[in-house]
Amino acid sequence: MSEIALSRLKETFGEAILETHSYLGDDTAVVAPEQWRNVCRFLREDSVLQFDMFIDLCGVDYPDREPRMEVVAHLVSTTKNHRVRIKTRVGDSEMDGAELDSVTSIWPGADWLEREVYDMSGVTFRGHPDLRRILMYPEFVGHPLRKDYPAQKTQPLVPYRTEEEAGLPLEKLAPFREDEGMSFGRKDWTRSHGEPVTGDGVGLRSGGSHGAD
């Protein structure tokens, strides 16, 4: 346990350490967002602490609180074998001003983690070299790990086009031309075999994405 980290932090940053606790043995310090990068640099460079590994970063959304988004980082020192968790809180109820300084210059390993938090929770990291979505695609709207993002919501990868936007009647956008395939497939079924069968038995429309069409 590295309560030493908490006491060193309190000594050095005083007011900027908003609260600390060691619930279940996990030493935790809540840091003022303005001091985020300074605290990180201190934890990395202090000779007693030497937190050289940036293990994890994630956002936890509390929509009822102000500031709303909690950004949680876990640090490890491989030389001193201790760990600490530092947190900060950013963003108002609309997530305006949810910005933090990037720590990629301190730990290069923070690169993808910051991109992930940006993608999933919508926290912007100032000074990140390449801040873009990582798990979701660029056209995705919203940030899925916020509590107000409905879990059931679906989004199309590419917006569906109307016939006017596509510039052609959609049925003419067939993937294969008639003469392209072999004798048994890729032809328009109705043209080579007449109208679909509609007897007493089955009415069959073979088309669209049927394997043999």
Binding site: V72, G109, W112
Partner: peptide
């Protein structure tokens, strides 16, 4: 309330 998973190969692939 929140279940964050820290997958080991995420950062490895990042490097």
């Amino acid at each position: 309330y929140r279940c964050r998973i820290r997958p080991p190969c995420f950062q490895i692939v990042g490097g």
